[in-house]
Nucleic acid binder design. Structure first.
Length: 556
RNA sequence: UGGGGCGUGGCCAAGUGGUUAAGGCACCGGACUUUGACUCCGGUACUCGUAGGUUCGAAUCCUACCGCCCCAGCCA
């Protein structure tokens, strides 16, 4: 839909309201903390709109912070892509930060924890740690290294940093409670050793890297974040988040609040799966228009406004659900209906000869660019004796519910005259190859008297139109919940992309530019493909079809 | 069967003890229409997970039960 949804007071905004009222805070600071190990997707957009939206609506600010504590998975390409996506969505961060900016401070706080007897260097290897951890129903056992002296821990930790120990040989662990029913509190690792990695920000400076659970609360506190918003799976990490801040000398303690992540029907949203699609080349890349990535949606033709609108429309709660694709589609339809200039394009051309129309002669017709917004102006169309209409817009016979061209029947050519079909010319196999029609010269701009024309169809001049390729997209997956019963790859929709190479578009479209979006009347919204179009080669992506209460193509 | 969460019409989602339980999307009618679009009217459907209890009054409070999600990375 167009128009703004009056931003709903979701439970997080309610908490903020009361924090403001109680005087706990006078300004609100949030952050969007992606890990640069992949491209952003529509689920991230939900978080972006939440965090940046709050910063806009309250006196406050929002930082963009890369959670870059695992150089094995992260890349500079992803940080650049993420910055571009956030900006494209319409937001500007107050400050650009990296968790790696805080590595030295993080190290200092770790030393503090050691000095307080709250952290220790553990020599258990990964397998042993797992054994000692216990299970969901049994408590864990304390590490034999748990009671080392502070001096020894300090020495060992310093040597970990100095690179004296091999990967996996030791970790720095918090000293909390191996019997905690919350497994996250069973002496979680704070630092691990990783040699030989070049971190995209810090290079080879470090060979020990802090863990998320340790880094995140401190990064938030350093930045003065007031409300640290994250998804539900971090709910039982919150006690650890709080533990960290309660046990170091920092005077800021942000409040972590969790909300449910977005699930969308007929697509996949996890980074693991999206990465797999890209790596195995099941799609053309992160920006494949079928992908739910921001880059994919952008190339597909979605507008930032529509994505923001969608994110507001679905709300923010703690209950997990799966949103119907229709809600996203509705958002872009609503926006584009209001702003997209109208054009005509024939996707499956069928030649029509207007027998009583003078040959060698074109007639310039003015057509409005938008039925409800005159400020979008008009453009010229050229009507010629030979035109193309869509094959789906003709039938030799049909019942009266069919509002298109029928043998012996009349139909309006959009923005032009009424024509009657006199004959359907067929080839030897019986396939219709051409229609013979006659037009009524007295029907331009007004309806004929005494009879009713059953419908309106679009057309393009056979001599003035331009060839174009049109790509029709369908849902990425066949199943509403891909992978539910097995491998999600088995649920990929083999017909998610349909390429039409012989389309004919109206002359004006030859001047289409990347970034412009059009409505191809009676078909849907389209835009020039940003990657495969070139001068002289028109490639259009269908952003979304028009809503259709009839059933495009098929009917009965 | 440890811990943490969630359960309101097909899908989201308001609701924070007090008349007929918002709204959006979807769906079904109708109006309008040179886009089977848009827009505009109208409409359908709810045991508020279940069962008890407290109360004059419960989606809201209590108890039990059921269902679903997350957690045993030196990932985030």
């Amino acid at each position: 839909m167009n128009g703004e949804i009056n931003t709903p007071k979701n439970f997080i905004r309610q908490i903020i309201d009361s924090d403001l009222q109680s005087g706990s805070h006078s300004t609100i600071h949030t952050r969007f903390p992606p890990e640069p190990n992949g491209y952003l997707h529509i689920g991230h957009a939900k978080s972006i709109v939440l965090n940046f939206g709050i910063a806009q609506d309250y006196p406050g600010s929002c930082n963009l912070r890369f959670d870059d504590t695992n150089p094995a998975k992260e890349e500079e390409e992803f940080v650049e892509a993420i910055k571009e996506d956030v900006r494209w969505l319409g937001y500007e961060w107050a400050e650009l930060r990296f968790a790696s900016n805080y590595f030295e401070q993080l190290y200092g706080f770790a030393v503090e924890l050691i000095n307080a007897g709250k952290a220790f260097v553990c020599d258990l290897n990964p397998e042993q740690v797992r054994e000692y951890r216990g299970t969901l129903t049994e408590p864990g056992r304390e590490s034999p290294f748990r009671n080392r002296t502070i001096e020894e821990n300090l020495d060992l930790f310093k040597r970990m940093r100095a690179g004296e120990f091999a990967d996996g040989s030791r970790t720095l662990r918090a000293r909390i409670d191996m019997a905690s029913p919350n497994i996250n509190l069973r002496d979680p690792a704070l630092y691990r050793i990783r040699h030989g990695l070049i971190h995209h920000q810090t290079g080879a400076e470090w060979c020990i890297y802090p863990m998320y659970d340790y880094t995140h609360p401190i990064s938030d506190a350093i930045e003065g974040i007031t409300h640290s918003l994250c998804t539900l799976e971090f709910e039982d990490h919150r006690p650890l988040y709080d533990w960290v801040l309660d046990n170091i000398s920092i005077d800021c303690h942000p409040r972590q609040i969790e909300f449910s992540r977005l699930n969308l029907e007929y697509t996949v949203m996890s980074k693991r799966r999206l990465t797999q699609l890209v790596q195995e080349k099941r799609v053309s890349g992160w920006s494949d228009p079928r992908m739910p990535t921001i880059a994919g949606l952008r190339r597909r033709g979605y507008t930032p406004e529509s994505i923001r609108h969608f994110c507001e429309a679905i709300g923010v709660t703690k209950s997990e659900g799966t949103v119907e694709m229709g809600v996203l589609e509705n958002s872009i339809r609503g926006h584009l209906d209001a702003i997209a200039p109208r054009r005509m394009a024939v996707l499956d051309p069928l030649k029509v000869v207007i027998s009583n129309y003078p040959a060698d002669q074109g007639e310039v017709l003015q057509a409005g660019n938008h039925p409800k917004d005159d400020t979008l102006g008009t453009r010229e169309l050229v009507l010629t004796r030979e035109i193309y209409i869509d094959r789906a817009d003709f039938r030799e016979e049909a019942n009266k519910k069919y509002k298109r061209l029928v043998l012996g029947g009349e139909v309006r050519l959009r923005n032009a005259y009424v024509v009657r079909c006199d004959e359907a010319v067929k080839d030897a196999s019986g396939r219709i190859i051409e229609l013979r029609c006659t037009y009524d010269p007295d029907t331009l701009g007004h309806n004929p008297e005494g009879r009713k024309v059953r419908g309106v169809i679009h057309w393009v001049s056979a001599t003035q139109g331009h060839k174009a390729e049109v790509r029709l997209y369908d849902r990425l997956c066949k199943s509403a919940e891909p992978g539910k019963g097995g491998d999600f790859l088995d649920d990929l929709n083999p017909e998610s992309l349909q390429v039409l190479r012989d389309c004919i578009v109206e002359p004006e479209l030859a001047r289409a530019a990347v970034g412009e979006r059009y409505q191809f009347e009676r078909e849907g919204y389209f835009c020039l493909d940003s990657e495969d179009s070139a001068p002289g080669r028109l490639v259009f992506n269908r952003i979304v079809s028009l809503r259709d209460s009839w059933g495009k193509g098929g009917d009965e």
